[in-house]
Measured scan of single mutants.
Amino acid sequence: NQASVVANQLIPINTALTLVAMRSEVVTPVGIPAEDIPRLVSMQVNRAVPLGTTLMPDMVKGYA
């Protein structure tokens, strides 16, 4: 099972992602792969992401 990126805190809309804001977890459905965490740092989310939410490619500006 592949680990996905999960919000480690509430991430407000247009907030730049940080290492502290993300964690890796095996979840269903699978979201952005955990190995992409370094690439996600400083990218912005295009919606509010609640704690525990799996990050999907369409939630991160410039990711997809």
Score class of each variant (00 low, 15 high):
residue 36 D to C: 14
residue 60 V to Q: 01
residue 8 N to M: 06
residue 59 M to K: 00
residue 19 L to S: 06
residue 42 S to Y: 10
residue 35 E to Q: 11
residue 10 L to H: 14
residue 1 N to Y: 15
residue 41 V to A: 04
residue 47 R to F: 06
residue 5 V to W: 04
residue 44 Q to H: 15
residue 16 A to R: 12
residue 12 P to H: 11
residue 44 Q to R: 15
residue 30 V to I: 14
residue 12 P to S: 08
residue 58 D to R: 09
residue 22 M to D: 00
residue 2 Q to T: 12
residue 25 E to D: 10
residue 28 T to C: 11
residue 58 D to W: 15
residue 10 L to K: 10
residue 29 P to K: 04
residue 40 L to C: 04
residue 20 V to Q: 14
residue 22 M to T: 01
residue 45 V to E: 01
residue 3 A to N: 08
residue 12 P to E: 11
residue 62 G to F: 08
residue 58 D to H: 12
residue 34 A to T: 05
residue 43 M to P: 00
residue 38 P to T: 09
residue 46 N to G: 07
residue 25 E to S: 10
residue 60 V to D: 02
residue 36 D to K: 10
residue 13 I to H: 09
residue 40 L to D: 03
residue 33 P to F: 09
residue 3 A to T: 07
residue 8 N to C: 09
residue 22 M to H: 00
residue 64 A to V: 14
residue 5 V to A: 08
residue 55 L to D: 00
residue 35 E to P: 06
residue 7 A to C: 05
residue 7 A to M: 06
residue 32 I to P: 01
residue 44 Q to E: 09
residue 24 S to T: 10
residue 17 L to F: 01
residue 1 N to F: 12
residue 51 L to M: 15
residue 39 R to L: 13
residue 11 I to W: 02
residue 32 I to Q: 03
residue 54 T to F: 03
residue 28 T to W: 10
residue 56 M to N: 04
residue 64 A to S: 15
residue 5 V to S: 01
residue 39 R to E: 07
residue 42 S to P: 01
residue 49 V to A: 03
residue 6 V to R: 03
residue 16 A to L: 12
residue 44 Q to W: 15
residue 23 R to V: 06
residue 17 L to R: 00
residue 40 L to Q: 00
residue 57 P to G: 07
residue 31 G to Q: 01
residue 27 V to F: 03
residue 20 V to K: 15
residue 4 S to K: 01
residue 35 E to V: 13
residue 29 P to C: 05
residue 48 A to K: 11
residue 30 V to M: 15
residue 3 A to E: 10
residue 44 Q to K: 15
residue 28 T to V: 13
residue 48 A to Q: 14
residue 58 D to Q: 13
residue 56 M to G: 04
residue 47 R to Y: 07
residue 16 A to H: 12
residue 43 M to L: 12
residue 19 L to K: 07
residue 55 L to A: 03
residue 8 N to R: 08
residue 32 I to G: 01
residue 30 V to G: 08
residue 48 A to C: 14
residue 12 P to C: 07
residue 34 A to H: 06
residue 23 R to D: 02
residue 39 R to A: 08
residue 41 V to Q: 05
residue 17 L to V: 00
residue 14 N to C: 10
residue 21 A to W: 06
residue 52 G to T: 00
residue 58 D to Y: 14
residue 31 G to V: 02
residue 58 D to P: 06
residue 13 I to A: 14
residue 14 N to F: 10
residue 35 E to W: 11
residue 23 R to A: 06
residue 22 M to A: 00
residue 29 P to V: 05
residue 1 N to V: 15
residue 33 P to W: 08
residue 39 R to Y: 15
residue 2 Q to G: 14
residue 7 A to I: 06
residue 43 M to R: 10
residue 53 T to F: 15
residue 43 M to E: 02
residue 29 P to W: 05
residue 52 G to R: 01
residue 61 K to H: 12
residue 8 N to E: 05
residue 15 T to E: 09
residue 48 A to G: 08
residue 39 R to G: 07
residue 51 L to W: 11
